[in-house]
Amino acid sequence: MTDWTDRMLELLVGPVAHGGHFVARAAEDGTPGVDGDGRVVFVRHALPGERVRAVVTEDPGGAFCRADTVAVLDPSPDRVEPPCPWAGPGGCGGCDFQHASAPAQRDLKTAVLREQLERLAGPAAELSTVPLHEVVVEELPGGPLGWRTRARLAVDDAGVPGLRAHRSHDVCEIADCSLVPAGALEPVLEQRFAPRTELEVTVGADGAARVGAGATVRAAGRTWELSPGTFWQVHPALADTLAGVVGDWADAPAGGVGWDLYGGVGLLGSVLAGQVGPDGRVLVVESSRSAVRDGRAALADLPQVSFVPGRAEREIARLSPSPDVVVSDPPRAGLGAATVRALADRAPRRVVHVACDPAALGRDLALFAGVGYRVRALRGFDAFPMTHHMEAAVLLERLG
């Protein structure tokens, strides 16, 4: 097969796909495929229904290739001017949807979430007491710009900081980032750093960006002092939103036992602690030493909370006592079969599961259905505006 790299294609853009691109087809002569014929092209910077010209950026030699839109011949009514000049083809790879209106972005994410659940959740959809295909990705407060409180910058060979290009280690020089509060990043971008390193930048409550610094954050009615590198949600509204979801769904009994797996500094565990009360127990399992240290300091007034340093998937079988309710917020890959089975063996009545990848969520829901759990509630959140990323939360209940 001829390598299509750098080839110009004319495409009729189809549906959004998981990963921030859209599905199109191209014939061998570079014109749009007809009636599903032609090679699959995953094209960025486009929208469904558009006719575009796109340049192939990557051709792995199989059934598909990747391309970037360079001209829009027939624009979608949802298309807008991107607020960031570095977000287009060949530029920064951090944003996928800056060319779409904010409502359209949420519609695109809703379509992806529904499609992934339909394709991967399998028996979970049949057992669910709520229709999974009706889930909607909800807007969070604060608007689509200036929401990011933390950013990771890459430093190029000359010591200039910037953001990486899409699917590349190349560093794009930028003067600002529209996702970070306006002007906060500029003083950092004007500095020079050790070549080929990465920088953790935190925007404090005063609006100033600092490299390698900790942060003071508030959520669920409490304050956490975070060490440099300790994880916290980057959207300022997400921590309280997830705490509210756990408060509404967990229903941990007074005097009961709650587990907070992959619990970080214990944000969601603090909500469980309020439900079980002083006579109950909450075990927060977390592998990051700095998160455990910061969490213990923040929750020192809650003697019912204990931190268990370690990886949740290894600790589940030996935690004691067994839980009435579990909150899980795993990394992007999700829980996986072994962890879901181990969790089901401990027989919690309810599981509040948080996911940041819709495909992993679909797979995990199918696994939970296989070990006797059904979906009772499901919500999606646009916690990463301008990107394809989203957050979701699911309430699972044990059958029988």
Score class of each variant (00 low, 15 high):
Ala208Arg: 14
Val246Tyr: 05
Ala254Asp: 14
Leu261Pro: 01
Ala208Ser: 12
Val246Glu: 09
Gly263Leu: 11
Gly247Met: 11
Gly207Arg: 05
Phe231Glu: 10
Leu261Tyr: 02
Gly244His: 04
Gly258Asp: 08
Thr223Arg: 14
Thr230Phe: 01
Asp260Gln: 12
Thr241Lys: 11
Ala243Pro: 02
Ala252Tyr: 01
Pro253His: 09
Phe231Ile: 07
Ala220Asn: 13
Ser227Ile: 02
Ala252Met: 06
Arg218Lys: 12
Arg210Lys: 00
Arg222Ser: 11
Gly221Glu: 12
Ala213Tyr: 01
Pro236Ala: 12
Leu238Pro: 05
Gly258Ala: 11
His235Tyr: 12
Ala250Asn: 03
Phe231Thr: 04
Thr241Met: 05
Asp260Arg: 04
Trp224Pro: 05
Gly247Leu: 09
Ala220Glu: 09
Ser227His: 02
Pro228Ser: 09
Leu261Asn: 04
Arg210Asp: 02
Arg218Glu: 15
Ala220Gly: 13
Trp259Tyr: 10
Ala243Glu: 09
Ala243Arg: 03
Thr241Arg: 15
Gly263Ala: 13
Ala220Trp: 00
Thr230Gly: 14
Ala243Met: 09
Phe231His: 04
Ala215Asp: 15
Phe231Ser: 11
Ala213Trp: 01
Asp251Ile: 00
Arg218Val: 08
Thr230Tyr: 01
Thr216Gly: 13
Gly258Glu: 03
Ala215Ser: 14
Ala219Ser: 15
Trp232Pro: 04
Trp224Glu: 07
Pro228Arg: 01
His235Met: 14
Ala213Met: 01
Val245Leu: 15
Asp251Trp: 00
Leu238Gln: 15
Ala252Cys: 14
Pro253Ser: 14
Ala209Met: 02
Gly214Met: 06
Asp206Tyr: 06
His235Gln: 11
Arg218Asp: 14
Ala250His: 03
Asp248His: 13
Val234Gly: 03
Trp259Asn: 05
Trp224Met: 11
Val245Lys: 07
Thr223Cys: 12
Ala208Phe: 00
Gly258Val: 06
Asp251Lys: 07
Tyr262His: 15
Arg218Met: 08
Gly214Cys: 06
Val211Trp: 03
Ala252Asp: 07
Ala213Gln: 00
Tyr262Phe: 15
Ala219Cys: 13
Asp206His: 06
Gly258Ile: 06
Thr241Tyr: 01
Thr223Ser: 15
Val217Gly: 10
Arg222Pro: 09
Ala239Met: 11
Val217Asn: 08
Asp248Met: 08
Arg210Gly: 03
Ala250Thr: 07
Ala239Glu: 12
Ala250Gly: 11
Val245Pro: 01
Ala215Tyr: 00
Ala219Leu: 11
Asp206Lys: 06
Ala219Ile: 10
Asp248Val: 06
Arg222Asn: 10
Ala209Pro: 04
